[in-house]
């Protein structure tokens, strides 16, 4: 009976390790030790302006208006 318990524990450990080994191999787990430069772009800040033509006084037109 005692032997049966020992074998059960042994089998359990074997199963856990086997699953772990298979999982690690299948995901090919490697921890990257390099750091890459990361950039983020925030585009889209917009500046707007509406430039109207200057209002020029038309002196010539004023002179052409007949005096009353």
């Amino acid at each position: 009976m005692q032997n049966k318990k020992r074998v059960t524990v042994l089998v359990t450990i074997a199963l856990i390790l086997a699953i772990t080994a298979i999982a690690l191999n299948s995901i090919d787990s490697e921890i990257s030790t390099t750091r890459t430069q990361t950039q983020d772009h925030a585009g889209g800040g917009q500046i707007g302006i509406d430039i109207q033509p200057p209002q020029v006084e038309d002196k010539l037109l004023e002179e052409e208006i007949p005096q009353q």
């Binding site: 430069q37 990361t38 950039q39 983020d40 772009h41 925030a42 585009g43 889209g44 800040g45 917009q46 500046i47 707007g48 302006i49 509406d50 430039i51 109207q52 033509p53 200057p54």
Partner: peptide
Amino acid sequence: RINIPDDATGAKTIEIKAIGTY
């Protein structure tokens, strides 16, 4: 700050882009 000469006219837009790096 914008400096505008007197012969410039029209609706104007410009985009500002920010680039963050670490």
